[in-house]
Simulated assay, not measured.
Amino acid sequence: LTQAYHVGANDYLNKPIVKEELFSRIETHLKLQQVNHSIEDKVVQRTRQLTLSYEKLEQAHDHLKQTQSQLVQSEKMSSLGTLVTGVGHEINNPVNFVSGSASLIERDLDRFKILLNDLVGKNDDELMAVFDQRFDELFEHLSTLNDGTERITEIVSNLSTFARADGTGDGATEYALNSLGKCLNSTLNLAKTNYKTEVEFTCDIQDDPEIRCNASELNQVFMNLMVNACQAMEGRPDAQLSIVMKQLGSELIISFTDTGCGMSQETIDKIFEPFFTTKPDGKGTGLGMAISYGIIERHQGRFEVVSQVKDGTTIRVHLPLKA
């Protein structure tokens, strides 16, 4: 009997076999089999439901993480805008003092030079030559000083354009009509400060129509694309970043083409995923392109990515003229 159970038996009858008992047991086992099949079906169905629920929960969790990251970055950008406004004002004041004083010094030097010419007269050419040489050096130093103050003013202006909040200037994010040419150039000037000796930049703005947008958010997208392109070309002697903005039909297209390392199709498929990065540890968070994707999506636009390994990358931003 023990051996019979080991090989799969689940019941037994004593001889002589009674027909009624046999049929009753068969009927009972058939019912048990139906119950087992029903339980198995319910387990499979419930497992399927749990799997779907888990997948939905996982998707919701990923979406929540992405939204949280966007909120954190948005708060950082808002804080940056407030910071830049205050710091820009504090920097501009002393820069204006320096610029104004330099202009006054230049005016007074001109007057002093004229006075010396009148005092010395035309009788001592050798002495006047020495004076002229010294004056030329002083004027050259003043020119360098003026160039420096103009550069500081330009950097502060670019930062303000990059980080400004559209509309009221109080951090509001309402969309407004903007021409992106100035924004693109300001962001490019900021990117150049870190890469101007390593990368050759070209910017061709063929069309600059007004579109309804949040310019500060788009500046953030442009900066992400420029920095990513420059980092992809690090160490390359032929590093070039070409930016073209043009209108095509009902869209405004801004393309960023670099001569960097390029990307595989597998990488292209993942670049907009939160926390995905090909950069070494400490070089990137993997949030830049995910945030950029969300910004362009809110503008009812889209990305187009064309890339080959070792053959550079072109990323096009398509924005609707009427959103």
Score class of each variant (00 low, 15 high):
82 T>F: 11
287 L>Q: 12
45 Q>M: 07
59 Q>V: 11
115 L>D: 13
115 L>M: 11
282 G>V: 10
195 Y>S: 08
243 I>C: 03
187 T>K: 03
75 E>T: 14
318 H>T: 08
124 D>T: 07
30 L>Y: 08
213 C>K: 00
299 H>G: 11
203 C>K: 04
290 A>V: 12
74 S>N: 12
214 N>E: 13
136 D>C: 05
250 S>E: 14
152 I>H: 08
183 C>L: 07
275 F>Y: 15
104 L>A: 09
34 Q>T: 03
181 G>F: 05
200 E>S: 11
212 R>S: 12
81 G>N: 00
28 T>H: 11
224 N>W: 08
88 G>Q: 06
76 K>Q: 12
228 N>E: 06
307 S>W: 03
15 K>F: 03
19 K>A: 14
20 E>D: 14
37 H>N: 10
117 N>T: 10
42 K>P: 01
305 V>Y: 06
157 S>Q: 05
85 T>V: 01
33 Q>H: 08
151 R>I: 00
60 A>H: 12
136 D>Q: 09
15 K>W: 04
113 K>I: 04
319 L>P: 08
85 T>E: 14
179 S>P: 05
95 V>K: 07
229 A>M: 02
43 V>P: 01
54 Y>Q: 11
23 F>I: 15
265 Q>E: 15
148 G>H: 11
79 S>Q: 09
131 F>W: 09
202 T>Q: 02
151 R>S: 06
84 V>M: 05
109 L>P: 10
38 S>E: 02
246 K>P: 05
150 E>A: 10
257 T>G: 04
159 L>E: 05
264 S>C: 01
225 L>T: 02
244 V>A: 00
53 S>Q: 15
297 E>I: 01
158 N>H: 11
234 E>L: 04
157 S>K: 12
308 Q>G: 06
160 S>T: 15
286 G>H: 07
29 H>P: 00
244 V>Q: 04
177 L>D: 15
131 F>Y: 08
61 H>M: 05
266 E>I: 04
50 L>G: 02
106 E>H: 09
140 E>G: 13
137 E>V: 14
78 S>Q: 09
164 R>Y: 06
225 L>H: 10
262 G>C: 06
9 A>H: 03
29 H>T: 04
96 N>I: 03
251 E>D: 14
243 I>G: 08
39 I>S: 04
288 G>C: 00
173 T>H: 12
5 Y>I: 05
18 V>F: 00
319 L>N: 12
122 K>Q: 13
17 I>Q: 02
72 V>T: 08
121 G>V: 05
225 L>W: 07
311 D>M: 06
293 Y>W: 02
220 Q>G: 10
319 L>Y: 09
233 M>W: 06
218 L>I: 05
217 E>A: 08
92 N>H: 08
72 V>Y: 10
276 F>P: 11
135 F>L: 08
143 S>M: 05
34 Q>P: 00
269 D>Q: 12
273 E>L: 09
130 V>L: 04
255 S>Y: 07
287 L>F: 13
222 F>S: 06
108 D>W: 00
147 D>E: 12
15 K>S: 02
148 G>M: 05
254 I>R: 02
48 R>A: 09
20 E>R: 12
300 Q>F: 11
315 I>W: 07
273 E>G: 00
153 T>V: 07
